[in-house]
Simulated scan of single mutants.
Amino acid sequence: MAIIGTFTANANGTFSGSIRSLSLNVRTVQFRPVDKTSPKGPDFRVYSGAAEFGAAWKKVSRDNKDYLSVTLDDPSFTEEMNAALVVIDGVHSLVWSRPDDKKAKPATETE
Rank of each mutant, 00 (worst) to 15 (best):
D63P: 01
K105A: 13
S97I: 14
D89P: 00
V26M: 03
D35C: 02
E52F: 05
K40W: 14
K65R: 11
G54E: 02
S97D: 11
F31W: 09
V91M: 00
E80R: 15
V60L: 09
N25G: 02
D66C: 05
L24T: 10
L94T: 01
D73N: 14
E79F: 12
P39C: 07
K59W: 08
K103I: 14
T14K: 10
K59Q: 15
S93R: 11
E52M: 15
F53V: 05
F77R: 06
L85F: 11
D89V: 05
P106M: 08
R20S: 08
S21C: 07
K36W: 06
T78I: 11
D89H: 10
G13N: 03
T78G: 03
S21T: 15
F7E: 04
K59V: 09
W57I: 07
A55S: 11
N82F: 10
W57D: 04
K58F: 07
S48T: 14
P33R: 09
S21A: 12
F15I: 10
E80Y: 13
D35H: 01
G17Q: 02
T6A: 03
P42T: 06
R45F: 11
L24I: 15
L22D: 05
S18H: 09
G5P: 03
I88V: 11
A50E: 11
L68Q: 05
N64H: 12
E52D: 05
Y67E: 02
R45H: 13
L68T: 04
P33F: 08
K59Y: 06
S23G: 09
F53A: 02
D74Q: 03
K36H: 07
D73P: 03
S18P: 04
L94K: 07
A83Q: 01
V87D: 01
R32E: 07
G54R: 05
S97H: 10
T37K: 15
V26P: 04
A11R: 14
T78V: 14
P33Q: 07
A56Y: 06
W96V: 10
F15W: 07
K58H: 10
Y47R: 05
F44R: 00
A84G: 00
S18M: 10
K36Y: 08
V91A: 00
F7P: 06
P39L: 10
A104M: 15
V95H: 04
A9I: 06
K58G: 00
N12A: 09
K105R: 15
V29I: 12
S69G: 04
R98G: 04
T14A: 06
G17F: 04
N10D: 02
V34P: 00
S76Y: 10
K102N: 14
W57R: 09
G41T: 02
